[in-house]
């Protein structure tokens, strides 16, 4: 995979250059920061990149899951509980957790392969609710209702953790890239476009849909396990619907079915989540008199604005922000470089 020729090829095309640039930036950025909070946010972005990319792989095979938080939670709880009860080191635990998540994903996948898109979305959503209920029902084993402190993953300081997460994330995105470029990725695309026709040309659609499910839930479980060890705390709220819808929003705003979409999307959504909150005091002081029903209007006005912004973005850029970047790139190439 990493022969000299391949590396040379990577440097020669623009996509490869951009990917290398992104990797370089992600490696250098923390060295320029003195601020721990920023590093925390960067690590969150990196973890959510894995999560959103895993969801995106499943969506690229035409299976839009609305319950991926179930696998995030299963991954997180498995690795944390293994570490606490059996003393399994988290660095091994995260992969065991991902494997268990994939095994459960396999079982859910089997029930889902016969279903059409909307039916599948509901089954996955229902599964996340059932998983959440089971985890709170068996609280003596899971300690989910009150939550518990999770052990650190090898190192407890932030910077090494960031680099570890970046490396895992690069590996995951690279694996997903090769899957999407392979014959299997083509099959996913064919199924997404028209399942009946894909079956007609001889694709075993059930098999490929199941592959997509297992791969996607593996990476979702992995991201959940890393997330739990990163937050150093895990709680039943990891199964929330917000966590299920998050990768959808990240993938759609970035660019559905593309490899870079979820990466861009997770940067945008995590930044919005953590920094937009800073305008609350301003909104509060400026607009408070208009709304007598609420004492603290800042968050609500901000969220209305965010909602309007998200709707407008997706109306103007139905294929996500990456489509804008592509257009820009072609414009630069055809108009500016050729006219020289």
């Amino acid at each position: 995979m990493f022969t000299k020729e391949n590396l040379l090829k990577l440097i020669k095309n623009t996509k490869g250059r951009l990917a290398l640039l992104a990797i370089a930036v992600s490696l250098v950025i923390p060295l320029l920061l003195s601020d721990n909070y920023m590093l925390h946010i960067l690590t969150l972005i990196v973890i959510f990149t894995i999560y959103a990319s895993s969801w995106n792989l499943l969506a690229s095979s035409g299976q839009g899951s609305l319950g991926h938080a179930a696998f995030l939670g299963i991954g997180g709880f498995t690795s944390s509980l293994l570490a606490i009860n059996l003393g399994i080191p988290p660095i091994v635990g995260i992969f065991l957790a991902a494997t268990l998540s994939a095994a459960i994903g396999f079982l859910i996948g089997i029930t889902c392969v016969r279903l059409k898109a909307w039916f599948l979305a509901m089954v996955t959503f229902g599964f996340s609710i059932i998983a959440s209920t089971l985890f709170s029902e068996f609280d003596e084993v899971t300690h989910a209702i009150l939550g518990f402190r999770t052990p650190p993953l090898l190192f407890s300081s932030r910077l090494p953790f960031y680099y570890f997460a970046v490396l895992i994330s690069i590996a995951c995105v690279a694996v997903l890239y090769f899957i999407m470029k392979s014959k299997m990725g083509l099959a996913f695309k064919a199924i997404h476009q028209n399942e009946a026709e894909a079956r007609m040309i001889g694709l075993n659609t059930a098999k490929y849909k199941l592959y997509a499910f297992v791969l996607s839930t593996f990476f979702a479980g992995l991201s959940g396990a890393i997330y739990a060890h990163f937050q150093r705390y895990i709680h039943i709220s990891i199964f929330s619907a917000d966590n299920s819808f998050m990768p959808l929003m990240m993938s759609v705003i970035g660019g559905l079915g593309t490899i870079e979409g979820p990466v861009i999307g997770s940067v945008i959504m995590v930044f919005i989540d953590h920094f937009l909150i800073n305008i609350d005091p301003f909104l509060n002081s400026a607009l408070s008199p208009l709304f007598p029903a609420v004492s603290n209007v800042g968050p609500n006005i901000r969220l209305v604005g965010l909602g309007i912004f998200l709707v407008i973005v997706v109306i103007l850029l139905p294929k996500g922000i990456t489509s804008l970047l592509r257009k820009l790139y072609y414009y630069v190439r055809t108009e500016i470089i050729q006219s020289e």
Binding site: G64, F245, L248, M249, I253, A293, N300, L303, I315
Partner: peptide, 29 residues
């Protein structure tokens, strides 16, 4: 967004949920 990917419609719905929920809070508490 009609005719685009179905997931775009869900995305728009999620945006609308944010808008409606918070407008209702602003008006009625």
């Amino acid at each position: 967004v009609l005719g685009a990917d179905k997931l775009n419609e869900i995305f728009v719905s999620l945006g609308l949920i944010l808008i409606f929920d918070n407008v209702a809070v602003l008006i009625w508490g």
